[in-house]
């Protein structure tokens, strides 16, 4: 794919390519790739790195199934070009258990099992990654649209009521309607350890 596109101007004939060699740091490992710039982070994970846990539900940031953590923050991986994610620390559902080591499962994964927080399972990896990000945000005291006093924000994640969890998780659609179980699972984890395990992932600059 090297070379000039149709209608190219001087700059692209001389210096630019449509693909790049780079590495993505995923779940703690550097993964070298040569990718067309059009490849999104989601497709890089699914099609090029055999990490199919992140799901493609809409490919436009309208469902949340592709949610992963980038530098500890939840992100729709379908709206990030992979080439722009180099240098970031990416954590997918396949790596979240490692955030809570030495647990075999991340506490949220266990809680989703315990509360039957899923049915078909397709939105589940996104729900879990998003919940980790949401609890990280809450641990900073960040309010949500459901927070009564914006300036006061929220206390520990364990203080989030169900409406807070629901609002913070609304970017993750679940067509099976497993919402009640999902909210129960997140509340349990938020309350059980004050969101401590997820919050460890939250410091800017490192998911691990």
């Amino acid at each position: 794919m090297r070379g000039a596109p149709p209608g190219a101007r001087l700059w692209d004939v001389t210096a630019h390519a449509f693909h790049s060699d780079f590495a993505l740091r995923v779940n703690g490992a550097d993964r070298p790739l040569t990718l067309d710039h059009r490849v999104t982070l989601l497709d890089a994970l699914r099609e090029h790195l055999a990490l199919t846990g992140a799901k493609k539900g809409c490919d436009h940031g309208q469902c949340g199934a592709c949610t992963v953590l980038i530098d500890g923050e939840r992100v729709n991986s379908c709206l990030v070009f992979a080439v722009a994610a180099q240098g970031r620390d990416i954590t997918t559902i396949e790596g979240v258990a490692g955030l809570a080591a030495p647990e075999e499962l991340h506490p949220l994964q266990r809680a989703f099992l315990d509360h039957d927080g899923f049915q078909c399972g397709y939105c589940t990896p996104g729900q879990i990654c998003s919940a980790i990000g949401a609890l990280t945000e809450a641990a900073r005291g960040w309010p949500s649209h459901a927070t009564a006093d914006l300036a006061a924000g929220v206390g520990a994640p364990g203080e989030l009521d169900a409406d807070e969890i629901r609002e913070r998780m609304s970017g993750n659609l679940c067509r099976c309607g497993a919402y009640p179980g999902i909210v129960a699972a997140i509340r349990e984890v938020a309350g059980a350890d004050g969101g401590g395990a997820p919050a460890r992932a939250g410091a800017a600059g490192g998911a691990r």
Binding site: R46, K56, T92, I93, E94, L113, F118, G121, Y122
Partner: peptide, 21 residues
């Protein structure tokens, strides 16, 4: 009984159609 495939689903290991290698 907890879903027998639940663990695969919460860890991202469950394969859906497009994901078979």
């Amino acid at each position: 009984v907890t879903r027998v495939e639940g663990r695969e689903k919460v860890t991202g290991a469950a394969l859906y159609a497009y994901e078979y290698p």
